[in-house]
Amino acid sequence: MNSLNDCRQLEELIVAGFGGQGVLSLGMTLAYAGMVENKEISWMPSYGPEMRGGTANCIVILSENKISSPILSQFDSAIVLNQPSMDKFAPRLKPGGLLLYESGNIFKPSTREDIDIIGIPATTEALKMKNAKTMNMIMLGAYLQLKPVVQNDSILEALAKVLPEKYHHLLPINRQALELGEALAREMKTQPV
C-alpha cells in the first residue's frame, strides 16, 4: 500500500444536525453513491447518548484510494443543520473549505473569511413541497451542485437503495428535492457576495 497516495482523499465531509433531521440518511445516500462509482467510502455515525434528542452527525469519506482513518478532526466540507453543529464544526473546516448550512435553523453562521459559507433555506422550501422530511435532500442537492463529488445518476441509484422499499412511492419527491437544492445552490453561486 502506498501511504502517500492514501493521503489524497477526494472528500472529507461532516454532516451534523438534530436527531430526526435526516443527517444520517443524507450521509448514507452520498456514501452509497460513492460505492456505485466504485470509490472507496466510509460512513461513521455518532451513536449513543448524543443522538437521543441531541445532535447527530456522520463523517463521510469518499476516496479513490483505500481510506485510513474513518474518524477525522478536520474536514473539507460541512453540511450543518442546527446552531450547535454550526458552532462545533465551523472551526474544524480546512481553509478553503465549504460550509453549507440550513438558514431556517441557523441564525448565527460562522464569520470565518477563509472558507465558503452558503446558507440554503431548505426547511422553508421543504414545507412548500408539503414534505418537511425532504429538507435533507434539498441540502444534499445543494451540496452536490457546489461539490460534484458524485454523478447525479449515482445519487438517484443510491436513493432507491437507501430508502426502504415501502417508501419507494416517495422517490419522486426526493428527486424533486435534490433538483430544487441544486437550483437553489446555483442561484447562490451566481449572486455576488
Binding site: M28, A31, P45, Y47
Partner: peptide, 10 residues
C-alpha cells in the same frame, strides 16, 4: 469495537 461495529463501508 463500537466504531468498527457501527461504521459503514463497502
Amino acid at each position: 469495537d463500537g466504531a468498527i461495529g457501527q461504521m459503514m463501508e463497502k
